[in-house]
Design a protein around this nucleic acid. Sequence first.
DNA 1: CTGTTAGCGCGTTCAA
DNA 2: TTGAACGCGCTAACAG
Lengths: 349, 349
Amino acid sequence: MARQIAKPSSTADAQAVKKAGSPTLVDVAKVAGVSPITVSRALHRPEVVSEEMREKVLAAVRQTGYVSNMLAGALASKKTRLVAIFLPTIANSIFADTVQALMDRLTEAGYQTLLGLTGYSAEQEEKLLEAVLGRRPDGIVLTGTLHTESSRLRLAQSGIPVVEAWDLSEDPLDMLVGFSHEGVGAAIAKHLLGKGYQRFSVVSISDPRGLRRCNSLVGELARHGITSVPMQVLTPPATLEVGRQGLKQLLEAGEAPDVVVCSSDTVAQGVLAEAASRGMRVPEDIAVMGFGDLSSAAHVHPALSTVRVDGKRIGDQVARALLERFKHPDGGKTVRVDTGFTLVDREST
Amino acid sequence: MARQIAKPSSTADAQAVKKAGSPTLVDVAKVAGVSPITVSRALHRPEVVSEEMREKVLAAVRQTGYVSNMLAGALASKKTRLVAIFLPTIANSIFADTVQALMDRLTEAGYQTLLGLTGYSAEQEEKLLEAVLGRRPDGIVLTGTLHTESSRLRLAQSGIPVVEAWDLSEDPLDMLVGFSHEGVGAAIAKHLLGKGYQRFSVVSISDPRGLRRCNSLVGELARHGITSVPMQVLTPPATLEVGRQGLKQLLEAGEAPDVVVCSSDTVAQGVLAEAASRGMRVPEDIAVMGFGDLSSAAHVHPALSTVRVDGKRIGDQVARALLERFKHPDGGKTVRVDTGFTLVDREST
DNA sequence: CTGTTAGCGCGTTCAA
DNA sequence: TTGAACGCGCTAACAG
């Protein structure tokens, strides 16, 4: 009996709901014998309503099966409780931890998330943005700092709080949570040089941030007299197959690297697999450097070095920045968080 | 000059917009010298408007920087162009291909996606659903067929098209695209028995579908006289660490399996890693069976067998089912697609 | 092809 | 603490 739900066809109650669609605030108000606004308050600001009213209203809500219409609410209040998140891809994504943490925080704060996939393309991001702005999200989270001029303008005009994540830049759109990819490239170079490696090569997907890490690596190597760094740049998304192909093509091109730097751990694992299938020992014959520490990838192969990025922390910081801004819409601080990274060497376990 | 965008503060034009917020249909209509509805039509149904009007409107749109408000539009038309997708997790997800394909199709059809993470919990799904229904999505995609009674009722009452993906069941909520997990378990059992394996063990995360595959496997094995199947069930999400721990604990418990069946390829790779670090040869000392064929995981280790699931196809079919239903809201057919699966053996490459 | 009227279902702002 | 009036910005239905 307690489980019974009023259906439009049921006529058990005197005040049968006639309309076709789902019940509205007015329907609930009639059943409860109060005004619509009291229903609204009982639901969204229970503390300003008397115990008695609240109970009457909640009973009526249960009876009618009422579900509040956020569309109408948002239109009236100009608050959508919606945050748009743009990601390059969801496949084998290094961003999984970030998104998980971010969504967890937002959900517990009563926000919902609209997801957009940009495929590492600023143009696609622009198109998506165009569509998403129509939804008037309270906040927008972008991956990276590469956006079209049109996107930048629209975002600026919209006045919507924006967080750029997973990168750092000199001219942020608004808020910023990430780390320096140039820093990563340079750190990798120094680390590997320090261990005595000489013949470097790179396997990367064509992702803007990955390429910047590579360029920085190459630059740093050049500064140390290493001018030739054979590079395989393959198409996203980053799969194991990319790593296998990358190493295969390097070797078939006659290269004999003593270390391969990869754009992500997934790619690195592909490289490891290809090396294994060729009977190459890691790291004696060839060392492999990954990036991301996707689920502690370093644990997979005792000889895989990688760069650990705390994706969860990024997500947490992004959420905190947004929620803070939602509270104080004109709070002065421009958030800019450098989450850093950690080089994880095989010996440092 | 072409890049110039009218800002509220600019007074270049005679018809300066005074209001604070973003420009509305009415603002655009005034600038264009037409009625609001004409603007609406020029934007959303250009074919019913004369070339001349359309151009006037588009010019005014550019001038004002107008972005149509889907909240108001949805409220008036009762169409949100929003699809909610519920996933257990985004971390290392076997659903990545499905989501990617699904979102690609929906996006190109003009729909946007609200993402919800349920953490393999029907209760969490119920809470999320409660919140998401307020957004009046045009469609809902759920992972699996395990839902609370309350969720089932609310979904039924809402009348929103629902697709349950990645599973099959006898009493679907509405539409259904997936495959039989019992079928997978039985197929694995038969296959491995056929290859002569005798000492089975299982490493799984506690995911409803994974456990059903296991149970089916165990049942089938029992039918063949194998009654003892040591099992390690660990906490989601599926990480490499889960696989390492799983095998470790099996071995430390004194088990000596000749084959380990895993709930996913990620777990399987963890098992492979642990086996390697113990100097065990695969498949001579121990064989490993995965699930999902996440980015052709079988390619990683020449001796890994797995079950290939076409996640992309699932996503495509889900999208097609939804879009079809959107077109014909009362179309008779109850969609039910069995997408099947393929056992991929190490020799069958 | 274009315009007019009348809401969609709620929250804000005032008053009681 | 509760309620009445109004408008959020847009589209459906009809009229011209």
